[in-house]
Simulated assay, not measured.
Amino acid sequence: MTWTAADIPDQTGRVAVITGANTGLGYETATALAGRGAHVVLAVRNLDKGKAAADLIARRYPGADVGVQELDLTSLASIRGAAASIRAAYDGIDLLINNAGVMMTPKATTKDGFELQFGTNHLGHYALTGLLLDRMLITPGSRVVTVSSMGHRAGRMRFDDLQSDTGYNRVRAYGQSKLANLLFTYQLQRRLAGRRTIAVAAHPGGSSSELSRHLPRVVQAAFRPLEQDTEMGALPTLRAATDPTVTGGQYLGPGGFAEMRGYPRVVESSGRSHDIADQQRLWAVSAELTGISFPV
Rank of each mutant, 00 (worst) to 15 (best):
Q69W: 12
L76E: 06
L133K: 00
G141S: 09
L137M: 11
D112Q: 09
V144M: 04
G67D: 12
T74P: 05
F114S: 04
S75T: 09
S142I: 11
A84V: 03
L133A: 01
A100Y: 05
G155L: 10
V145K: 13
R87G: 14
L96R: 15
F114H: 09
G130T: 04
R153T: 11
A82I: 02
L123H: 07
Y90H: 07
A89M: 12
T120K: 05
R135L: 04
L123V: 08
M150V: 12
R158Y: 11
D160L: 02
D165F: 03
G130Y: 15
E70T: 12
D91L: 13
H152T: 03
A84M: 05
Q69E: 14
H152F: 03
G113D: 05
A108H: 08
G101K: 10
K107S: 09
D165I: 10
L131P: 00
L137V: 11
V147W: 15
M150A: 12
S78I: 03
D112F: 07
V102T: 15
T105P: 02
D134G: 02
L76I: 02
S75M: 06
R87V: 12
D134A: 07
G141M: 06
L96T: 15
D161E: 05
I86K: 01
L132Y: 05
F114M: 12
F114W: 15
K107M: 13
A83F: 02
I97N: 07
I97T: 14
I86N: 01
S85K: 10
L132A: 10
R87N: 14
S85F: 03
L137D: 09
V68W: 02
R158G: 05
A82M: 02
F159Q: 10
